[in-house]
Design a protein around this nucleic acid. Structure first.
Lengths: 324, 324
DNA sequence: TTGAAAGCGTTACCAT
DNA sequence: ATGGTAACGCTTTCAA
């Protein structure tokens, strides 16, 4: 790989001059510029980003930390972040924290050591102080960390309320809930929303709520338990789509017809939920938009542009399909 | 952030000494080492990876370029690569090429400019020469680029043959094929396998093969066309699971029962294929193993360890579930 | 308008 | 056993 020195030598100028044309900064004569450009092309020279980063203390990169890359929600989000980041001239490093505090901290260190300009994170272990110490722009997505931090979330509670009410209006007499991962903010909020709606029902008991881990397996398991314990259940609100899909599967295994005997509604609106049979009814988040918005805000922060607002609560939308 | 100089100053030694204890290289006295370690802890010092990379011309990072991060196959692969890379002490940068030549080239440049130690790529536009020019270890996964290059693939043709024969043995009289993306090697191979089995059938015509793009939408579309043109079809081999899921959906829309009136088999064995209703019969690739193997091989290459073999054709496995 | 040189944070070589 | 220093490839300040 040729370096700036090679270009300078070939063009018969100093490296300073080459740097100037590279960055379009400072004065450089027309003919000199042409010479340099010719040399660059001839050598197929590409600036060394590492050296640049060392000097600038910035690497033109943003980090994206997600808790579970196997949940389609996050690839969809990642896709949006990547698209927007590319558009704005940044690269993205995708990190999978596995919902694990140590891994997350390790990635944070790595990102910092690699001079990322900013980080988008979906975390429930990170605290506001930790972020403060990091001393680099961060936006939180999908999960609120602290009211004061730049954040993109949706109205989780409201969504859960809509979902549960919807089930009720559909005629469900007994509604169960598959909770999201214990300790995750949005899981709490969605559970609260559900509870708000059913708390007053005479039939309601704590055991109508079972724990899942936002993944399929745990949901199949949880749903089976739930349905064995409460065979009278005729409606389930799952805290995300993957778990809703797991619930459908469990219902199928137990010989319950969806939606005839059991209505199921999810949360997220991931693309894949449309190809289930039956297609999944869900509370859809504007996933792509969330990713774009997070990126835009982060970049504004990084580039110190003043922005009106950094905490966004996006709206969700009930999409009725065939599982209810 | 504190630098090596700060540590040296605090410990009352030279930066060279600090570097020695950091890397456990060269002589350093016991008491000196302790002083330095104390200073490191006190300052919470973390070496600057960028500076390290600049000197070493290596960034302790491997690049992973995939064509479509929305297809669950690739997150699963990415997950395996990431796990193994972390285990071996490397970070991974995930890039989504979108099956697009320019994006791919751009990422290749970016990775190179960032001194990645090696790259794992799933590509059908990349040529052997391009890779040679890159002058950095590369392993190709999921798609063969050239026989001479380190490669992890599966027996695509054999898998396709097994799939098609299986449909035949199940009693299907007319079998159609949803092809993968045009121009992608494994799509060709899978199509060949299918053709091998049905070519001699009296009913067979070219129009039993329709084109999909390895994604859901295109497959729904293609399947509808196929079934309208050939309503007599009672078996479909889709070149990947996502398209098989699309086919199930299309069948459902057209009022065809799966598997009673139409058997459908996919290819890949992605996790999500188990939660369809009906669960998808598929030719499963050992996805996680492929990712691990690719990473192991790449790292061996990077660390110049001699390795016996670099071209791996892994075996596939027919998993019979409910869609056939 | 251009060039020389310092500096970014490391590592490794050469002295001592 | 330890320290000084050149070098990695770039940007920017200061002089000319």
């Amino acid at each position: 790989m040729s370096s700036i020195k090679d270009v300078a030598k070939l063009a018969g100028v100093s490296v300073a001059t080459v740097s100037r044309v590279l960055n379009d900064k400072g004065y450089v004569g027309q003919s000199t510029r042409e010479k340099v450009e010719k040399a660059i092309k001839e050598l197929n020279y590409k600036p060394n980003e590492i050296a640049r980063s060392l000097f600038k203390k910035q690497s033109n990169t943003i980090g994206l930390i997600v808790p579970d890359i196997m949940n389609p929600f996050f690839p969809e989000l990642a896709r949006a972040v990547e698209d927007m980041a590319t558009k704005l001239g940044y690269n993205v490093i995708l990190c999978n924290s596995d919902e694990n505090r140590e891994k997350e901290q390790a990635y944070l260190d790595v990102l910092k050591q690699n001079y990322v300009n900013g980080i988008i994170v979906s975390s429930n272990t990170l605290t506001a102080e930790q972020i403060g110490e990091l001393n680099i722009p961060i936006v939180s997505i999908d999960r609120e960390i602290s009211k004061g931090l730049p954040t993109i979330v949706v109205e989780n509670k409201k969504g859960a309320i809509i979902a549960t009410r919807f089930l009720k209006n559909k005629g469900c007499k007994r509604i169960g809930h598959i909770r999201g991962t214990y300790g995750v903010v949005n899981a709490e909020e969605r559970c609260e929303g559900y509870t708000d709606v059913v708390a007053e029902e005479p039939w309601f008991r704590k055991s109508y709520i079972v724990n899942g881990n936002y993944d399929m397996e745990s949901s199949v398991e949880a749903t089976r338990e739930l349905l064995c314990l409460h065979p009278e259940i005729d409606g389930i609100f799952a805290a995300n789509d993957i778990m809703a899909m797991g619930a459908i599967k469990a219902a199928y295994q137990l010989g319950k017809k969806v939606p005839e005997e059991l209505a199921i509604i999810g949360f997220d609106g991931i693309t894949i939920s449309t190809i289930m049979t039956p297609e999944l009814t869900t509370i859809a988040q504007p996933i792509y938009e969330m990713g774009e918005l997070a990126t835009t805000i982060l970049v504004s922060l990084m580039e110190q542009q003043s922005i009106e607002k950094t905490y966004y609560t996006l709206d969700i939308e009930l999409i009725e399909r065939k599982s209810t």
